[in-house]
Every structure is written in C-alpha cells, then in structure tokens.
Design a protein around this nucleic acid. Structure first.
Length: 399
DNA sequence: AACTTATGCAACCGCGCAGCC
DNA sequence: TGGCTGCGCGGTTGCATAAGT
C-alpha cells in the first residue's frame, strides 16, 4: 500500500454554534484552521503505527466525531487488536473480581450509598477504587454506569418530546449509533436512554411506516449492492442491520444519501464523471455543512457503501441513491418535513412545518446559511489545499 | 386462568482509546 | 517505546411487566 505524503489525514466534524463544521487536515493544520482552542486537535503520536500512518480518523471531543475506527481499520488494513491478542494468547485482566462482585439490579441502599458519597466527595477520578472506598460490592464500571444513567442530578427518564424525537432521528440518520453524541444534544438524557428509546420505539415507528416504500427501497438497495450474498432476509450481507436501517430511513426521506462529494466514485480521480461533479462539490461555497450532509460522510453507513462501491463496483448504488443534481439544501427542508410526517403523521407534520414554531427546535440541525454567504469561523473545508489533501488520499488508496 | 409472546428498560460485557509509568 | 490500566462507548443480555391467545 502506498503511503500518503501526509502523516495524518484528518476528517473531522465539529458541532459548534448549532452547526456542524467540517475539517480536513493533517497534523499541524490547526493553526491554518484557526480553530478555537476548545476544539484543538488531540494527536497522540504514541499511537501512530509507523508503517500505516496514512490515516488518522479521530474523535476530538465529546461533540466531535469522524469515521469509525472499524472503517479505518478496513481502509488501512490494520489488524484489529482483539484478533491479535487472541493469536498471541494475550488476554486482558478483568477489571474486578467477578466472583465477589455483586451483579444485577441496585438496591435503594446501594443507590443511597453511592449517591451520598459522590455528592459529597466526587468520584475521586477513579471508578475502580470507588466501590472499595465506600464498601460496595460492585464493580467500578457498574458504579459509574449507575451514577451516569440513574443517580446523577437532572436525569430525565421517559416522555421524549417530539423535538427530541426529531433530533434523535435526524442524528441517527446522519451519524448512526453514536449514542453518546446524540445524547449530548439532549439535556438530561443518557446515551443508554436514547439508545433504548430508539431501539424500542423510534425505530419501529419510523421503519414501520410506508412498508411498501420500504420494500421498494430495500429492493433497490439489494439489487444495487448485492453480489450473491445471503438474500434470506432481503438484506445484503455486506451491510449491517444498522446500515440498512439508515438506508431505508434516508430513502424514505428521499434524501440524497450519496451526494457527489460523499461518494467515492465521485471523488477526484475516480472517474471522468466524478471529476466534473467533484469539482462542483469541492469548490462549492458550502463551507458550512449541514448535519445531514456531513453526517452522511461520517457515517458507518456511508463507509459501508464506500467499501461496497470500491470493492464491488456497485455503481448502481450511486445511480439509485444519489441525487442527480446538487439540490441538497432544499432536500434538507423536505427531509425535515418528511421526518415529521413519518414520526407524527401527515396532519401533524404539516401543522408543525407550516406553523414553524414547533419545528424550529433548539438545535438548528437543518439550517444552512448559504444564502447569507457566511462561513463559520475556523471552517476551512473544500479549500484548494484540502482538496489537494483529498486528492492525495484518494490516489494513495486507489479510490 | 394459564400460558406464550412482545415490550421496555436496566445492567452487563467487551473493546478501543489515551494517560501514565 | 512498550506495557499497564482506567474510562467511555456501543452492542447485547436478562428480567419484569404487559399484551395477546
């Protein structure tokens, strides 16, 4: 595998000012990015792998996210640690003595003990040691989970609002099952709550509607992505259940899942068709990227599709799913309405959209300030330089 | 009423990251 | 530089309860 001339190629999304900013770059480009310090890049050079330091997809802070590690592993062909450990007979020592640690539901006494101690002394920065300090026969991780998900102040349980539903759905479609990130946008909600709520209610509510449309969508995707895989359940084996869900949701929302600059087939150097369209994408004025747009890029779904497209030549995916034109901004608006329709039915959705008030949730996920021509501070995606970075990256990996 | 199945939620588990030594 | 370890995350499991037959 060829090496990039760049040590790292970052591809990072940052929530900031109710918008998402997209950054490409390599080590040291923080200055050029003029990023606020709180978004400063964290680069642990210790974890470079000398022979495979072409890419570095990373999460920068609570509210930053990028491509999944798994996808990175696929991209650079890195051996995953667990497999390596298994081969070498190297196992991780358990965090606690499983035989003596109590498991199962917490009693009110345990809750009170933990809550009182943390409120008075804090966690002390060491969850593992905490249960020993206070005499609880619990694993430190269990204590942490109990505190974070149940005991800590200002936790909300149940009764998700329509606005919260909307945020969860749109974020899931955009970034996938990054529950901690999604929960971070919902004050008082825990990642576990959001995850459970999605798995038990929201997913069914969304995927349960428009079954005909879903079947049609699944057929399109299956036809596009399949290469003789298991068709028993109508899903290509190469796509995870999560990816399929998001494909279905995106297609229900008539969202351009694989817009030109999100599709590897459209990246520079990939094809003649790509070169023309990618110019439009990379030189666009869209310095501010909507959550839906950039989230698609960051999503494991997109990465799955990217892999499929590369490995299987599934151009049909592009043809089937990509928007024929750029019209992504207006699609965001219709996507918003579609989402409400799916969640709450046509009448209510119409009312919410038309009324305007309820739809305008606290987080302006859908806004796109292109008309105003404003660029967010520190946002430097799609500059000539980043385009060069991208070109180099694409050439390195024969994308 | 008894049994089975579905649902919702809390908790557990394994993994990767990153700090520390 | 490499190993160890704690933290945080996402996926999964287990259990209580509700709903259906």
């Amino acid at each position: 595998m060829k090496k990039s001339k760049y040590d790292f190629l970052w591809y990072v999304y940052v929530f900031h000012g109710h918008k998402i900013h997209k950054f490409y770059g390599k080590e040291g480009m923080q200055q050029q990015a003029n990023l606020d310090e709180k978004w400063s890049f964290r680069c642990n050079s210790r974890h470079r792998e000398a022979s495979q330091k072409c890419t570095r997809w990373d999460v920068i802070s609570q509210t930053c996210f990028a491509l999944t590690k798994e996808d990175t592993d696929k991209t650079v062909g890195r051996e995953r640690l667990p497999e390596k450990r298994k081969k070498e007979g190297d196992g991780r020592a358990p965090c606690c003595d499983k035989a003596t640690v109590k498991k199962g539901p917490w009693s009110p006494e345990e809750d009170a003990t933990l809550k009182n101690y943390i409120e008075e002394h804090g966690t002390g920065g060491n969850w593992i040691a905490l249960p020993h300090k206070i005499g609880l026969k619990r694993c430190g991780k269990s204590c942490r989970l109990r505190w974070l998900n149940y005991l800590r102040p200002n936790i909300k349980h149940g009764d998700f609002t329509p606005e919260e539903d909307s945020i969860i759905c749109s974020l899931y479609i955009s970034i996938g099952s990054r529950w901690s990130i999604i929960a971070a946008q919902l004050p008082g909600r825990t990642d576990n709550d959001v995850k459970n709520y999605w798995n038990t209610k929201l997913k069914k509510r969304l995927l349960g509607r428009r079954k005909d449309h879903l079947r049609q969508s699944a057929a399109v995707v299956t036809e596009a992505a399949s290469t003789g895989e298991n068709m028993n359940d109508g899903e290509p084996a190469a796509l995870s259940a999560s990816a399929m869900e998001r494909i279905q949701l995106c297609m229900q929302l008539q969202n351009p899942l694989l817009g030109a600059h999100h599709n590897p087939l459209m990246w520079p150097g990939c094809s003649s068709r790509a070169s023309t369209q990618s110019n439009n994408s990379f030189n666009s004025n869209s310095s501010c990227v909507t959550i839906a747009e950039q989230g698609q890029s960051s999503s494991s779904l997109n990465e799955h599709l990217m892999m499929n497209a590369q490995l299987e030549g599934a151009a049909a995916i592009d043809n089937s799913l990509a928007s024929p034109s750029s019209a992504e901004n207006s699609n965001m608006i219709s996507m918003e309405a579609e989402l409400e329709e799916l969640l709450y039915g046509e009448n209510k959705a119409a009312g919410m959209v038309d009324g305007g008030g309820a739809q305008q949730v606290d987080v302006d996920w859908w806004s796109y300030d292109q008309a105003a021509g404003k660029s967010p501070v520190g946002c430097w995606d799609f500059t000539p330089e980043t385009n060069t970075v991208f070109l180099d990256y694409a050439s390195v990996y024969d994308i």
